[in-house]
Amino acid sequence: MRLTAENIAAKRGEDLLFADISFVLASGEALVLTGRNGTGKSTLLRVLAGLLRPEKGNVSWFSQDAEAGARACEACHYLGHRNAMKAELTVAENLSFWKSFFSDFLGGTGSSVSDAAEAVGLQEIIHLPFGYLSAGQQRRMAFAKLLVAYRPVWLLDEPTAALDSGAEVIITGLIGNHLAHGGIVIAATHQPLGLTNARELRMTGFAGVGEGVW
């Protein structure tokens, strides 16, 4: 399994945020994106998730049993700033909807809804509407969404925002576990995630205005 990014450049409005970003991540490897606010960490993650068209370059996914022509984003879980959970539905309803909607990617199976909630330490409150939860609990439940269906690549945007230190340990443990099982993690973060052997990509921001990259 391999996630390859080649010469990616992306714009935000007219400003070129970054250019010529290339990396190859194999099974079990992690990449941590660091840098000040506004240097393009979230933008890079959205490009990798296929939600933003890059100005130049491409992202591709390779594995032995992958179907030809599959988009790289189909192999990815994306945890953005927003939790993608409905405040009106209970946590269990939210998670079981996403479990059925995601359906497992080739080469693994997701855990059940109650197991996923237990993994983030909140199994006793899955009957509550998502809107009743605190910001930290909501974030943990949004993370549990990554566990209900298998995806080899996790794209995490500030996964530990709003979390207390105990929950941070749980989340970093889950990320470590995913890596140990051959997954790939790309995370944008300000806090250290405690990952050994993670590579770091330091985003510096790019001050070019509109001249293009071709």
């Binding site: 998730a49 599959a70 189909e74 927003r82 939790n83 993608a84 909607f101």
Partner: peptide
């Protein structure tokens, strides 16, 4: 779109 679900729907197979 507001809660981010649309992003995840766009990514699926």
């Amino acid at each position: 779109r507001e809660d981010g679900s649309l992003d995840l729907m766009l990514m699926q197979e």
